Simulated assay, not measured.
Amino acid sequence: MRYLTSGESHGPQLTTIIEGLPAGMPLTAEDIDFELARRQKGYGRGRRMQIETDTANIQSGVRHGLTLGSPLTISVENKDWKHWTKIMGIPPLEEGLEEEVKRKVTRPRPGHADLVGGIKYGHRDMRNVLERSSARETTVRVAAGAVAKKLLSLLGIEVAGHVLEIGGVRANPPEYSSLQELKDKTEKSPVRCFDKTVETKMMEAIDNAKKNGDSIGGIVEVIVEGMPSGVGSYVHYDRKLDAKIAGAIMSINAFKGVEFGLGFEMARKPGSQVHDEILWNEEKGYIRNTNRLGGFEGGMTTGMPIVVRGVMKPIPTLYKPLQSVDIETKEPFTASIERSDSCAVPAASVVAESVVAWELASAIVSQFYSDRFSTLKEIIEQEKIYGRSF
């Protein structure tokens, strides 16, 4: 299973094409719209979230609410496009009208892809870089993730994401009776945080950053329950599922670190406090009393909850911009400002859910027979039983 995305931040639309979905899986645009709406929420978002109301347009691969097994095409319209038709137009410019194209960017912003992308592709207008490297592209990554989450949920696998830290304000580890409780509580939080005692402090940190023309980052966590054991493989580096998930997290705009389970804390502990002992229970089969490794051993799922965290740096677009150099004159300037958020960590937790869900769904589809969804569901149910009783 694979997907591609296309489109620019201020172009007419964003598109994803998904190939490899099983046939006969229930899917509606509403399944995708729900996740798109979640991505647009969160304290600290900028003005664009007031302009756009993202909705999915399924253009192929579904008939009467069921997937066909053929490529699935989803597009999301950029409603702000009407203000950018001249600047981002497709046809060639008429001779003598080049100067009428405003907003040419010649001052690359530190922390963005602007300068390096311009060097790589030979663009003298950095807009050619920033339009595609923008986090707006995560809209259709969330759309693809919504499809993956639908597949997983129908197989009894649930995915939840939440915010652990924003701008140095850290939440206590969440304690919950079910993953649904975690979802319900974080969905009601403006910063998507389970810990109500720090919610206000996180919002204050975002307000202070905005007041100072600055931005702040944070840490998000994704938890997955219901995965059968043995998904992934130890036989080769590119088949290790935790490695694929780590790569997916790192591919999200502004993410700079990833860890599973105890993560970097493992460097400070002896092995006896890191590894998860294997026990036998007559009713449940193989069990672990701890989940320090975050649901993985040898690049494969253990059947325990998957716990993965990602570190998001502060967004580099600042309203008190950093020093830069004009690529035309080589003179120093402060970097140009594009519309941006002061903090996108709550929204990033939704994107993190999506990319993790995609890697898990893709691994399942690759490892088990998946032409027909009904057959895949039967196989996964049997795998869960086999993994407990082996």
Rank of each mutant, 00 (worst) to 15 (best):
V76M: 03
E165P: 05
V159R: 05
P92I: 00
G96Y: 03
L164G: 07
G42C: 00
S60D: 14
E100Y: 15
I87V: 15
G161I: 01
G118H: 02
I166Q: 11
L66A: 11
E131I: 04
E165K: 09
T55Q: 15
V101I: 15
E158L: 00
A143I: 03
E95V: 10
R45W: 09
L68N: 02
E77A: 13
H112A: 02
R132T: 03
I166W: 11
A146M: 06
R141A: 06
K41T: 13
P91R: 10
G42N: 05
V140Y: 04
K41D: 08
L164M: 13
L97H: 12
K41A: 11
E94G: 15
G111V: 07
K79T: 12
R63M: 13
V105K: 13
L151Q: 03
N128L: 13
H64P: 01
Y43H: 08
E165L: 11
I119A: 06
A56H: 08
H162M: 04
M88S: 06
G167K: 11
K102N: 13
R107K: 14
L97F: 08
L164C: 07
L66E: 10
R48G: 02
V116L: 14
T53H: 11
P108K: 09
A144P: 00
L152Y: 03
G122C: 03
G42S: 10
A146F: 08
M126G: 05
A160W: 06
